[in-house]
Design a protein around this nucleic acid. Structure first.
Lengths: 255, 255
DNA sequence: ATCGGCTTTTGATGTCGATCAAACGCGCTC
DNA sequence: GAGCGCGTTTGATCGACATCAAAAGCCGAT
């Protein structure tokens, strides 16, 4: 590992809101780098990334990182915490379109129209790295590996949404919830957390919105999964007892 | 950085399949350019685009432009015709994830994993412009307007899928079908076709798959919309008689 | 022109998940 | 520690859409 350290003064500046702090972020030190930035790049390139990503921002639980309609300025890499993204329809109904955890990128929705089209709301006290989009555009012109990586991230988001469409379009409620738990488990694991035991950051209602069902249905299914010995649930705590059973529900399903 | 421009002779070659023809495509002449390429670029930049997009391919009705699992090599801009993209789940169920018409881009799903994750199937005899992805990557490094445009296209695809998630997650069947018709109408119009009268290229089953309902439900809703004076339907032919009525179903909804 | 297969329509019935409702429990604040 | 509000659980009932079924229409092949 190359650890060329430019000793840059860390200057905390007062900004208009207390949640923004201009601290040196240093991708070079970030243990999430492999999750949100291209791997196998040179040390000089890492220095460039450190210049691209220079601002952190804290977002308290319940607060929005950005809102629908706001001018799109930056992408955000989740450093710590947990977010939901929420699309609000003109008549007031809304839909949770995703949950984001450490290392994942938020804000891609805003590039196309230059305004955000969803809300990103913190489900726990969180911290993000701000990636000014104009700088990313410029730097990605000079840095093929960054450009390639960025395109892959966007493409994967498209693919993820495809599979959510499949979930919502063709699967039954129990299959959706099993898929949801398996997906969470897998993402926990890839971040080095326990794969089979975790705290949900979202409410039953938010899970239900994401999965296209009502909160009562989510609750009933949790209870049934527990009765069937697949999981233990206690409020937000979940322990997966029979991951193969969950997979069978998810994939095997009918007959 | 390889920034050299080699003038490669464009030769019509016989390939293994009869559907590929290496002909000069000439974005510079294409009346779809404003739909699939950045506007307001210089003539020298248009020349570069002409070098990027140099192959056309015909796809017959029912044939796949690409299939799940195939190596990802290129994006495709639809020149003429109509496609569906289809995600197949491990147990065989599938979901139509989108319909693509002239000027729209296909293949974005493959960038992330370097393999296609869906099938793209022509619903009528169609023709596409092939955009070799490695060349697009390279050229987008040199051409900021192309890069910006490409990012916007991807972002808009993410936003489109968000709204499909909303559709599938929170809307009732009649709202979904109204949304579908309005969306088709709007896309026809933006291509200079009649907005209120068109032939559907897809079956009731494909519409149903896209909208998360069964073909019988699609058929019943068409009949009901007709009985209510909103549309005329005869097989694949649709005429919108009361577009505001459709909008009211789509947006006003509840109560 | 006839045949056969596929798409579409329409009806009868079934069911999954929504809705309505009530009670409980957890975590606030005072 | 008491009281309150929100999130959750669970039960009873309802309804939208699925499923099952059959007939009719359309289209291409012979």
């Amino acid at each position: 590992m190359s650890t060329s350290h430019r000793v840059t003064p860390i200057t905390a500046v007062d900004s208009d809101t207390s949640t923004v702090s201009r601290l040196k972020v240093a991708c070079s030190n970030c243990n999430l780098r492999e999750l949100c930035m291209p791997i196998g790049i040179s040390t000089s390139e890492i220095d460039q990334l450190d210049e691209l990503v220079y601002t952190r921002r804290k977002v308290k639980r319940g607060e929005a990182l950005y809102r629908t309609g706001e001018a799109f300025e930056a992408l955000y890499a989740v450093r710590t915490g947990f977010f939901k993204t929420r699309l609000t329809f003109q008549d007031g109904r809304d839909q949770v379109t995703g949950f984001s955890m450490a290392g994942e990128l938020l804000g891609l929705d805003g590039i196309g129209t230059e305004n955000h089209t969803v809300d990103a709301v913190a489900l726990e006290d969180s911290e993000v790295c701000m990636i000014p989009y104009d700088k990313l555009e410029t730097l990605s012109g000079e840095m093929p590996s960054l450009r390639t990586h960025f395109h892959k991230v966007m493409s994967r988001e498209i693919v993820r949404e495809n599979s959510v469409m499949m979930l919502l379009g063709t699967m039954r409620a129990e299959e959706r919830l099993a898929a949801f738990l398996l997906n969470l488990s897998q993402r926990m694991q890839s971040r080095g957390y326990a794969a089979l035991e975790f705290h949900l950051r979202m409410t039953r209602e938010e899970i239900g919105s994401y999965l296209g069902m009502k909160l009562e249905t989510v609750s009933r299914l949790f209870s049934r999964f527990q009765a069937d010995g697949l999981i233990d649930v206690d409020q937000k705590y979940v322990r997966i007892k029979d991951i193969d059973g969950l997979k069978a529900i998810y994939a095997h399903h009918t007959q």
